[in-house]
Design a protein around this nucleic acid. Structure first.
Lengths: 336, 336
DNA sequence: GTGAAAGCGCTAACAC
DNA sequence: GTGTTAGCGCTTTCAC
């Protein structure tokens, strides 16, 4: 049988209230002797307070939920790590949920998290589905959306990277390097980030008075397998291009592999730029020029803001645009 | 104010017991009419059962904890995903903890998880520290260790890949390919897997009557940055070798980059083999020959066994050795 | 079929 | 300084 606060109070010959106070560090008014006695007994017995029971009365579980598409996607571990680090630092615990961008799963997780009485939720939504936002709006639970904002969601905060400017800067750089027939290998264009990056891409071309090529937008998935195959096809078709701006690093990595497999020199024949700056971006040869997205910071900051919301209980509508940064490496040739 | 079971029972003019039954699908003996009435009202009110309160009485939180060194290490996301998938499938929720291989953090997390009354814990321990095992032995909470077993821990299960055989097979293959001056670029040798892989490496050499070279064991970290620098140094020193067996894929990837940066041809001049088969192993050129470790399956199976332990309440001492598989790709030359 | 009531382990007034 | 007590929201036994 596991020891409870009652057992401790009995053994220490005090009330449960007193034990509770020393367990929770609210023991200013408890005499040193009893405090020490209680502490010793707790130690001896190996008493572990039942936080479930505390949560019942405090209405705080000190737990937050994180819903992301897939922790196995290299973009998310760092994000998750950022969230967890801040959470842990503040004594919170993190529940991890993989939605696979599946609306049903998102919904289920949202429900489970609320049933488990999490204090707040960090959410990378698959789309801006209104049903989800509605449910979320109704419940009073603090929610922060990360990486992609979700339209119908009111009175909540969003942390996203500045995709448009990131893409703009990247493509601008490619143009400066002398690439001017640049494809955009995009992830699913229905997602906000993909759209924003596309906008940035277009704006960069426009600003340089360069007409986008026909078929410059190639839509697919955020996967190296997809881009590998797709780029092979592009090569075979004898398409005329000299640069590829990729929706993310995975796409860029797959493209790089396909190009190298056909002995196309990167960066001399074709320039390549990715997005995210995942760890692997610097582990390939040539290293990937890419737009660094502060994933870890996004997670960390999301958690910071979430805890602030939890503490203040007031919700503020807010869009936090985090800066991206172009990391120039070897997959683009240097500017003459 | 959030609706409680009482509110529902009042609105439906039934007892809380009845509501509880329909909420939890134990409503065989409830008439269809009342069942429907209750369901409708729950719907209308948007009632969300408080699972914290249920946990108080059922002594089940339907939550498990996962302690790993670092979710940002490419090895762990798949493992975590495996755990989460099975957990979710069985209606469990996953708490994620990053220990950074830090004993103190491991301890803290272990404590937190127990306070939160998780039903079980999956644990990749940094070392086989006895203090941890002792604490764990004392508490009755089911624990499964993954990837590395921890010695002092009694009556618990372990899921590990067969590192020794995996390494043996890999090095055997290298020898068959004609490499016979093979280095072992290891992660921290204090960790069990590193030791076991080293044993396999040695056994393979021995079986082929090949004397290990001097300084064949190079110890470092499971990081591409480390191996990149380390291999650069090896190259500069003009060391005589023709193959590198790496403690994991990150090490191999860093080595590959260093070799290629010095225009050393992989696989023709130097053969390279990794361990794990992370996603990136096939995204480089040449693709990495590696020992596939079934990370996802490890996580999934760990979760399966954990839930079995939770349900049976009996603990069985058990070591599950999962098979590794050599994946031959382009970083080793083909057998003549 | 349904309800009454006890109690899970804890906290937070408030009383002393 | 310390104790009493009333719940937190739910499940479950047992009675009806």
């Amino acid at each position: 049988m596991k020891a409870t606060i009652k057992d401790i109070s009995r053994l220490a010959e005090v009330s449960t209230a007193t034990v509770s106070k020393v367990v929770n560090g609210k023991a200013e008014k408890i005499s040193l002797t009893t405090k020490e006695r209680i502490t010793r007994i707790i130690e001896e017995v190996g008493y572990i307070p039942n936080r479930i029971a505390s949560s019942m009365v405090t209405k705080r579980t000190k737990t937050i939920g994180l819903i992301i598409p897939d922790i196995a996607n290299p973009f998310f571990p760092e994000l998750a790590r950022g969230v967890e680090d801040l959470a842990n630092k503040e004594g919170y615990t993190l529940i991890l949920c993989n939605s696979d961008n599946d609306l049903k799963k998102e919904d289920d997780y949202l429900g489970m998290l609320q049933e488990k009485m999490v204090d707040g939720i960090i959410f990378t939504a698959s789309s801006n589905h209104s049903a989800v936002s509605l449910a979320l709006n109704k419940s009073k639970i603090p929610v922060i959306t990360v990486e992609r904002n979700i339209d119908g969601l009111m009175s909540q905060q969003t942390i996203v990277a500045n995709n448009e400017i990131g893409a703009f800067t990247a493509v601008k750089h490619m143009l400066k390097c002398g690439y001017n027939k640049i494809l955009y290998l995009s992830g699913p264009i229905k997602s906000k980030p993909a759209q924003e990056r596309y906008s940035g891409y277009l704006r960069a071309l426009k600003e340089s008075n360069i007409e986008p090529m026909k078929f410059h937008l190639i839509e697919g998935y955020y996967s190296g397998d997809w881009s590998f195959i797709r780029v092979q096809k592009i090569i075979k078709e004898g398409f005329d291009y000299d640069g590829i701006f990729c929706g993310n690093d995975l796409i860029a990595l797959g493209a790089l592999k396909a190009l190298q497999a056909s002995d196309i020199d990167v960066p001399n024949q074709v320039g390549l730029v990715g997005f995210d700056d995942i760890y692997m971006a610097q582990m390939v040869n040539p290293e990937l020029t890419t737009v660094r997205q502060p994933n870890y910071e996004m997670g960390y900051q999301a958690a910071e803001n979430l805890l602030a919301m939890i503490d203040n209980e007031k919700t503020m509508l807010n869009l936090n645009l985090l800066k991206t940064r172009l990391i120039v490496r070897g997959s683009t040739r240097s500017i003459n």
